[in-house]
Design a protein around this nucleic acid. Structure first.
Lengths: 109, 109
DNA sequence: CAAACCCATAACCGGTAGGTTATGGATTGG
DNA sequence: CCAATCCATAACCTACCGGTTATGGGTTTG
């Protein structure tokens, strides 16, 4: 098995960090300021989480004047999918759900 | 979003622990002894990792005399799949691979 | 241009996580 | 039945992680 990026698992293991990623992913580009507003931790803490997310490619940043805007990069999750795909059971258990997803994606449906 | 079991992410975040899980998953039931032989850490360390894997349902144990046999429970990964399914990009990017997997699973193929 | 704002970094701190050795209970084998 | 084996737990240590406050550089605004 190819050695999956350990940093990816580690980056997602912290709940605060995962929450930050989820907000950005679901609501689009966010500034550090807006993230700090609801993170429940200080601004430096948020910045550090963002740095870790960035180092594992889960987010990218864009400077706009004095603000830094962060966007989600969910493609960075692909190694996780690959890793899980080695444990076949998961397909069996979620086959129904999988079919639904495929139908929704199929333009000829 | 339902609060995904934090313990699951944490359990998988450690590389030694993940390796142990992978061995059991790929090669079937294993004793603590055999796992210790290649884990690169002491037997108590392995036992602790197994306890953590067990507490997040990733493995189950079965006592046989003085031995304890551990088996993988990959269904415990399902919450991870669910979590990732919220970040749609992943399906688009891996669609080809997904198709391959489905073909391999199809008994009429 | 001075003040306020946004953010990253530095320095520090406490808790926890992963490792170790020591130990002991249960089981097997000679 | 005594010794050896398998494993879990306890006790301990260290390193790292996630948090804090302090600070300062860059940017906008009044």
């Amino acid at each position: 098995m190819q050695p999956i990026a350990d940093d990816l698992f580690k980056a997602l293991a912290d709940p605060t960090r995962r929450a930050i990623f989820e907000w950005i992913a679901r609501e689009g580009e966010q500034t550090v300021h807006s993230l700090t507003a609801r993170a429940g931790v200080s601004q430096p803490a948020v910045s550090k989480h963002l740095a870790i997310l960035k180092s594992s490619k889960l987010v990218s940043d864009r400077r706009v004047g004095r603000e830094t805007h962060y966007s989600a990069q969910p493609q960075a999750l692909v190694p996780l999918v690959d890793w899980m795909s080695h444990y076949g059971v998961f397909w069996q258990d979620r086959f129904d759900r999988l079919e639904d997803l495929l139908k929704k994606m199929d333009p000829n449906d």
